[in-house]
């Protein structure tokens, strides 16, 4: 981690990427979400949907969590435009304007911190959440308005492209 943070120094990196570090559970979340719209851990013992990823069910404590396609509808509870970041990738993205994140409660229960995709979304609005690989090859969650068609891989990829999430942030020339 210390080494990775060293590489986060602006002067050392031509191409800055989002935080790559994940726990073993986080890495399994990324692997499970290589395909599909949204895969979350479901407890086969009590049906609880577990997020953030964990090794045991947070309700019944069973070692019975499996990744499954998950109903991705939810409600946006709060949103925030970030103007400051500790990470070089986001610092560069902030040069183009604030970075939006939000809190979504899925209809299935879990509350998740997400990137907010393009489109108008206000607290209380219906939204849908999908997962996609970012420029560090980690799965991240993105919320978009309810009306957006997310059914094809191409449609989801176009949103991530528009956000600049799957490309490194290039060091501005002269910097």
């Amino acid at each position: 981690m210390r080494k990775r943070l060293k590489l986060n120094r602006p002067s050392l990196r031509q191409r800055a990427r989002p935080p790559r570090h994940r726990t073993a559970s986080g890495a399994r979340f990324s692997a499970a979400n290589l395909s599909g719209i949204l895969k979350l851990q479901h407890c086969t013992a009590c049906q609880h949907i577990q997020y953030p990823p964990a090794e045991l069910c947070g309700v019944c404590l069973a070692d019975a969590l499996v990744y499954r396609d998950t109903d991705n509808g939810g409600t946006l509870l709060a949103q925030s435009d970030l103007h400051h970041s500790l990470w070089e990738y986001f610092k560069r993205r902030l040069g183009d304007g604030p970075w939006s994140v939000g809190t979504v409660q899925l209809d299935g229960g879990p509350t998740m911190i997400v990137h907010l995709g393009p489109g108008e979304m206000a607290p209380g609005d219906r939204v849908q959440v999908f997962s996609h690989s970012d420029a560090s090859q980690s799965a991240v969650l993105i919320a978009v308005p309810d009306s957006v068609d997310l059914r094809t891989r191409e449609a989801r990829r176009a949103i991530v492209l528009a956000m600049g999430l799957n490309a490194p942030a290039i060091r501005p020339t002269g910097a």
Binding site: M1, P19, H21, T23, G26, H84, W87, H115, V140
Partner: peptide
């Protein structure tokens, strides 16, 4: 350093979202 690795759930589900 502390913010980037405060807890497992921060590492997996909070810090990647803007690293604020």
């Amino acid at each position: 350093l502390m913010a980037a690795q405060f807890s497992n759930w921060s590492i997996d589900a909070a810090f990647p979202y803007g690293a604020a």
